[in-house]
């Protein structure tokens, strides 16, 4: 079931967006003190690492990076059978009093972020939680807003935004595709085709 997508971000645009977000994060915090980055599994994690690398480059400070798996916090059990593999949560630092920057690839309905915040507060009480995403495609279903956005992309609900990252997919690019088939068929393959 090949889908030919339209490229909306190139390697270079992704690189620049990550650097810009990294500057914004430090600027908003007025420094790096108390900052931790938490990537949401799967593609939020490499993005968080890239942001940490960029901050290390321009600030000379290496921020702690954690990985958050929100599988157990999803509100739709029917997805378990399709993708039961849990990728793991690793938060090797104390969240209490820290400023957590949640990092994800795409912000859409907001439900993933809602689940991620639920998960985070089970680990401790951060002073603040912020949100950084590579793409904001709109269509929010919850009152959630990103603090740092790589690119705002107007989409329709019939479209799929696919972020590919070298660490996961072997290539850096963002594509937008129109759903060609009933939903059930695309859920299992999105993120890996192409």
């Amino acid at each position: 079931m090949p889908m030919s997508g339209r490229q909306i971000m190139t390697v270079e645009e992704i690189r620049r967006a990550v650097i810009r977000i990294s500057h914004e994060i430090v600027e908003k915090q007025a420094g790096t003190s108390g900052l931790v980055l938490v990537g949401i599994q799967r593609r939020g994690v490499p993005l968080a690492r890239r942001i940490a690398d960029a901050i290390a480059e321009h600030e000379g400070v290496r921020l702690p990076v954690g990985a958050l798996d929100i599988t157990f916090y999803r509100d739709d059990l029917s997805l378990i059978a399709q993708s039961p593999v849990v990728k793991g949560t690793d938060l090797p630092f104390d969240l209490n009093g820290s400023t957590v920057v949640l990092v994800d690839d795409v912000l859409y309905t907001g439900r993933t972020i809602r689940a991620a915040m639920d998960a985070l507060v089970d680990f401790g009480r951060p002073r603040a939680i912020r949100l950084a995403v590579l793409i904001d495609r709109g269509h929010r279903e919850l009152p959630i807003r990103a603090d740092h956005v790589g690119k705002n992309v107007p989409t329709s609900r019939e479209e799929v935004v696919k972020v590919h990252l070298v660490e996961v997919d072997g290539v850096d690019e963002v594509e937008i595709e129109r759903l060609p088939a009933p939903l059930g068929e695309t859920v299992g393959v999105s993120g890996t085709t192409g």
Partner: peptide, 19 residues
């Protein structure tokens, strides 16, 4: 719901290996 999973790629992306 389903669309978000498909779109964001984060929570529901299956096996990572593109191969």
């Amino acid at each position: 719901m389903t669309l978000e999973i498909g779109a964001s790629g984060s929570p529901a992306s299956p096996v990572p290996e593109a191969a």
